[in-house]
Design a protein around this nucleic acid. Structure first.
Lengths: 229, 229
DNA sequence: TGGACGCGTGAAGAGAGCGTGAAGGTGCTC
DNA sequence: GAGCACCTTCACGCTCTCTTCACGCGTCCA
């Protein structure tokens, strides 16, 4: 099911969107402020974000830029502002579409579908991933090595999940930290190393010479589904 | 260079779009009818199609459906029609965006960029570059020679990345230094030579006679994608 | 012909980044 | 309250990376 995060400070708009999208089979989450939107994105991994520009406190564009620092989740901006300069600024900041209020629900849904259609990443959120050595049930949060279950902690699932959902891609420290710990928290960089050590000890055949969870010195980590290539 | 196919029956609109997009570095093709648009798409393989709905003869939606029968080329529909039913129908038929005339060129370009950004093939920032001898995965920070992985350090990636993103172009010492080390730091000019030496030893077939990373004595360095021409 | 200059290369030291073990703290369950 | 699992912090050693320095070679010019 497609997860939609609705970000708007007006409760009645959130309610209207929730009802309408819910009725069409979307799983809707709500956020009343930019700060909440950021943590909700980190926690719930929505497939698309509907972002109001006129938020109190943290501005909509700021939210968008913060999101783009660590995630490529599609964002459709909804706003009453109709001036071209704002449109261009928002689109250049990484928004996928820009819809001016008022709009019809049918059009919004059609635009959501159009954005999701062209984004191959969200098309398939893998529920399960297997390598030569271990098998991960991402949906059920279970890991197996040779049929034997291996227990991972919630935090370890957060790290593994984010890496595994971006195979071959280099994930920087910052991206991983914000994706797992949320955008507000700023932990010791060493913390990530400690948890990576735990993960490797649990999942790698030889934890000291990792085959699947590779370190890119000075940059971040990368998940390698199969050892070669 | 990004190829844009403009489909509109009004010559002055085609001209206006051609001029504006051409000035912004796009390669523009024109089609005055749906039939021409279809053959032009097949022949020219545009990166994106700007499609007017109100075509004489073959209708715009029909053109879109015909296109979607065999290609996923992004399509932005431009039209004066503002009713929601048409928008929904067009978007559901496979259009990527729907812009109502009149619109500003800045907005159109921003929307074109937003649509192209989604498609890794057409994104302005290349993710991968290959020469006859080596292959670079810029996004993943990985380099290969004959299928074998070669490890580059972060600093080496910084240098290589900057050179490779400006192929054929001469990059001065100062440009490279500020791009990699930042504008504040002012290192020994010899430092760059040392690192270029490392890079050449890792990537060049004959490090002493470089084919790809060329020295322009007294000025800077240059990346040559293929040895000849 | 000799010296200055720019470039490339080898070696070596300094330093940062990474992995690991251990210990302290917190919240939950029994 | 005791036990447990988990998260976080800290200290230490190691490896890799970055930087510096010295030297050789070729080119240019007086």
């Amino acid at each position: 099911m497609t997860k939609v995060l609705v970000v708007d400070d007006e409760p009645q708009i959130r309610r209207a969107l929730s009802l309408n999208l819910g009725a069409r089979g979307y799983e809707v989450y709500e956020a009343a402020s930019g700060e909440v939107a950021l943590t909700a994105t980190a926690n719930e991994h929505p497939d698309i974000v509907l972002l109001d520009l006129g938020l109190p406190g943290m501005d909509g564009v700021t939210v968008l830029e913060a999101l783009r620092g660590w995630t490529k989740v599609p964002v459709i901006v909804l706003t009453v502002r109709d001036d071209e300069r704002t449109k261009v600024r928002v689109l250049e900041a990484g928004a996928d579409d820009y819809v001016t209020k008022p709009f019809g629900m049918a059009e919004l849904v059609a635009r959501i579908r159009a954005v999701l259609r062209r984004n191959p990443d969200t098309a398939d959120d893998p529920a399960e991933i297997a390598t030569d050595h271990f098998r991960l049930d991402l949906a059920g949060h279970r890991a197996f090595i040779a049929g034997e279950e291996v227990r991972l902690t919630p935090l370890e699932w957060g790290i593994v999940g984010h890496l595994v959902r971006n195979p071959h891609r280099l994930v920087t420290y910052r991206q991983l930290l914000t994706a797992v710990w949320g955008p507000t928290y700023d932990p010791d960089p060493n913390l990530l190393r400690v948890h990576m050590g735990h993960i490797r000890r649990k999942l790698e055949p030889q934890p000291s010479q990792p085959l699947y969870f590779i370190t890119d010195s000075g940059v971040g980590y990368r998940f390698q589904p199969s050892p070669d290539h």
